[in-house]
Nucleic acid binder design. Structure first.
Lengths: 192, 192
DNA sequence: AAATGGCATTGATAAATATCAATGCCATTT
DNA sequence: AAATGGCATTGATATTTATCAATGCCATTT
């Protein structure tokens, strides 16, 4: 499934075929079963990771054992904990697979090497980072300005495919509401 | 006050003094009075902007005329709308000054030129972007996992200086709660 | 086919937060 | 000094959302 990653790089960057080979050479493919961890709270995250198949989530657990889901990543998107990777500090997040999945891993030092040696790769990476930031900022905006129902409707618009793929309780968590509230919202909006 | 910007670059990057001169050469210093706009909803944002003095905020207005504050930026931090800058689309945000302020502006094309010609500058910029993303992600985490009171206490920890500088109603908006609720929270926590 | 486990749904109730309205407090202007 | 405007505070009430508990529905396992 490394082809998925190659295709992505070809589409998103101007990396030459030789450089692409150089990139692939340092990739490690990891298969993770459903419910298997990619990262556990307290461990240090050491990779850049790209999902080629399946779906993973990033979340925390609070004192009461409630899950708080920060992110979903499906095929053709990145996952990991940038903060732990950058700082070398233990992560506060857990990452696990919601389906049997496949992930491409590149170690921090290899990744830095690629960025330094392949300008087109570096540009792509920074473009992704920029996009990630914009997405995060827009999500912040939904939290400060929308009601539970509005957040859900916006989620439906933006990620229609995720709705079928991810349990509702997890979507509720992602939106910062309880599963019961989401269930009622769905029930009500269905009637309209 | 361009010295503030120079000092920042010297501290945050390995840019040489000659390159620093090259950077400063394309900087435009803009002074903005309290309540003056730097950007209005519907306009396209065309700069990278660094605050050398004062304080600005980024916010939206909803149908009911309520403000929703996305961000504050004080001396030594950046402001602007990355999304509008990248896409060339009109911004959905407003940015205005909360105090008489001073901002250093660099146009998009000059900024790209600097990034292309000065690797150390490019690295600094990407480091800032990375940090911005991490901050945004952590803020998302507060929205999905904390109560109003907890969010406020965390805000106090992280930005103690802002509390004295910014009207409480704006902090409430930044936290996604009403001014009344914040007032009551302060009243209660003061008693403890 | 029966049993199991994980969700989603639904109802009753509680808690958190928003809304509306009134008042008070300052700093700034006149 | 008086008047003004912008906030913050406070109280009463409404609305939203969470919590707790019970039930039901499927898909998977036995």
């Amino acid at each position: 499934m490394i082809e998925v990653f190659k295709k992505y790089i070809r589409e998103k960057s101007k990396v030459s075929e030789e450089d692409l080979d150089k990139i692939i050479a340092v990739c490690q493919v990891k298969r993770v079963r459903k419910r298997q961890y990619l990262l556990q709270e307290g461990d240090v995250w050491k990779y850049n990771a790209f999902v080629t198949k399946g779906c993973v989530r990033t979340y925390t657990l609070d004192d009461k054992g409630n899950e708080h889901i920060i992110n979903f990543a499906v095929e053709n998107w990145w996952t990991g904990d940038r903060e732990s990777l950058a700082s070398g500090e233990p992560s506060i997040f857990n990452i696990d697979a919601l389906e049997d999945s496949e992930v491409v891993l590149i170690t921090k030092s290899n990744f830095e090497m690629l960025c330094a040696q392949i300008p087109a790769f570096n540009d792509m990476v920074n473009g992704i980072l920029q996009k990630s930031f914009i997405v995060a900022q827009n999500r912040i905006h939904t939290f400060i300005s929308l009601s539970a129902e509005e957040k859900y409707l916006k989620f439906l618009e933006k990620f229609p495919h995720l709705v079928m793929r991810v349990p509702q309780g997890m979507i509720a968590s992602y939106l910062g509401i309880t599963p019961e509230t989401l269930s009622r919202i769905r029930n009500q909006t269905a009637k309209k």
